[in-house]
Design a protein around this nucleic acid. Structure first.
Lengths: 190, 190
DNA sequence: AGAATTTCTCTACATATGCAGAGTTATTCA
DNA sequence: TGAATAACTCTGCATATGTAGAGAAATTCT
């Protein structure tokens, strides 16, 4: 499932995600993607003849990228929890959440765009759920290890808290949250 | 500042906000607004010859609507705080936050659309700030009365928390939060 | 090598959009 | 009442977009 063909496909989907972040859903057009990907006009149309496909596949691609990042976070978390205890690991995750809004701003904004779009377009519902699940997974892992599932705050609500803070910062509507503040929120919901 | 002219203008801006919620920024076109407002084609173009104007004015209109709702919330909060104490008032606000996602779903989703758009379009930056400020105002009031400003959680972060939970629910990515859960978040950040 | 097939690239076209401006109706004012 | 002005409404046009399909280039196969 790789090779030059797959590489090209990936170039296109990466460009789509970048465009989602930089110009929003309305900025995602076949032509704009071709240009952003540095490919001849018609390339994205060839790989994804219908725009709906393009958005669905871009969502899946984004979910895969998120899962990769999330897996790394989980590993780091488990590692620190084992060595330095859960408290230190909570601080670690809080720090990661803070820096994630900077290092993966495009991924985050693209996900927000797609989440909003999925709320009103039935054909995107499934991939919207997929994206949410991907973003939720490390939090689930995190909560299980820290509270043993004893919290009565649903996992989705915890994910919402984090997304909300990230959105506030990513859209420039508030200051960068500190590690302490995020950690305080975590400890509050546990 | 009212009369039939103003009424028509308001019809148009209301329709724009409805479209923002139901079809996103890409669904907001002069023609779609005319139809949604039940006015002849060309009406929205007449009142807002440039699309940028349309979005700016729709944002201002939305901010005004939000401020109206927020004022009512503040009054209710202050009232309950005076009669039944701060704790009861916190519960009241939590309940209002929960129900707001249902009763004012369009206003909320429209604000999310505009906030995301404002993050990438400089000409919308100012109205984006306006919207954030409108959403923040009751929280500021709320925090001042409950914690006396003693919390070190910035007001913007608190607003982010609430928006995140609302977004999760409004986009169907999670269950409706309960009053208790919201109240727990409030008490946690105080 | 040469044919066959796949992989792409380019052009074309129907539709939708922002916007301008002409034409029309309603309102104001003398 | 009748002209002047304001408030619309409608048509048209340049541009952008999704998508189809022709054609070119690369690859595979014999």
């Amino acid at each position: 499932m790789s090779g030059p063909k797959q590489a090209r496909r990936t170039l296109i989907l990466d460009a789509a995600i970048r465009l989602l972040a930089s110009r929003g859903l309305e900025g995602v057009t076949h032509r704009a993607i071709d240009e952003a990907a540095g490919l001849p006009q018609g390339s994205s149309t060839y790989y994804f003849p219908k725009k709906e496909m393009l958005l669905v596949e871009a969502s899946r691609h984004l979910a895969a990228l998120l899962e990769k990042d999330c897996d790394e976070l989980q590993v780091g978390f488990a590692d620190i929890a084992a060595r330095q205890g859960v408290d230190a690991a909570v601080d670690y995750v809080a720090g990661e959440v803070v820096s994630y809004a900077d290092t993966a701003r495009d991924l985050f904004l693209a996900r927000m765009e797609l989440t909003l779009a999925a709320a009103r377009r039935p054909e995107l519902k499934d991939v919207g759920d997929l994206l949410s699940a991907a973003a939720r997974r490390p939090i689930e892992f995190f909560l299980r290890l820290t509270s043993g599932g004893r919290t009565d705050m649903p996992i989705e609500t915890c994910a919402g808290l984090i997304d909300g803070i990230s959105l506030m910062y990513a859209t420039g509507q508030g200051p960068k949250p500190t590690t302490d503040q995020i950690a305080a929120v975590f400890r509050a919901v546990l």
